[in-house]
Nucleic acid binder design. Structure first.
Lengths: 109, 109
DNA sequence: ATTTATTACTTCTGAATAGTAGAAACATAT
DNA sequence: ATATGTTTCTACTATTCAGAAGTAATAAAT
């Protein structure tokens, strides 16, 4: 166990949080693709979520069948308190580094 | 080529930027350990920097010998314009996601 | 000139994270 | 019952990172 979260893990956590009540596999995938303008595979998403759940950063449960065209029951995801702590932690670190290096990161010529 | 940067790559880029004129292997390592309170391996750092340089996000050159007790010449690193763009890009994405999910990430009970 | 100390860089292996391909489960429509 | 749409899940491959060990370059001490 490495103890910190990877780039994709963080992206998935943030997306789950932003989706609130409607976070399940496909909606998470679509949302990431929409906001990051990058296509991600559903398999990569599930293996990442499995890892996040093993680390205690997310939890999940099966929803009830819906009236739609078809499809298996959805598995809904939610970020845990520990997951929120992890996100705050990496954000604080990055904000601190940005503050320190702001002058050196200007895009002006 | 993946097109985006990983967690550790981002940390290294930010640290190089924050160090300005004095960014070389050992100083980068020490600074990351100091600010993130996590010990990083010098080997992982060098392989990551090699990758960043291949992607055009950093550049480097050998410094002159110094007046110290001994020791090999330092290799100095600097972030390129493209590297800055990458950092701004991931920051913008994260800021947008935080904004969207702020209410769901509160730590209050 | 040879040895020794110091600083920095490089290589290698195993583990953790990221990504791919496609099968399986479930539901509706014809 | 067969076909089709929607979602989840599994097995496999690739990339990145940690940790340990070692190599290279430089200068002081002898």
């Amino acid at each position: 166990m490495k103890g910190y979260i990877g780039e994709f893990e963080e992206l998935v956590l943030l997306t789950i949080a932003s989706l609130g009540e409607d976070a399940y596999g496909v909606s998470i995938q679509e949302n990431i693709e929409k906001i990051s303008n990058r296509s991600i595979s559903i398999g990569a998403l599930y293996s990442t979520i499995t890892r996040l759940e093993e680390k205690g950063l997310t939890k999940s449960w099966l929803g009830e069948p819906t009236q739609e065209r078809g499809g298996r029951r959805k598995r809904y995801f939610e970020i845990t308190h520990q997951g929120k702590l992890s996100l705050h932690h990496v954000k604080d670190l990055r904000d601190a580094l940005w503050k320190l290096s702001k002058a050196n990161l200007s895009l002006a010529k």
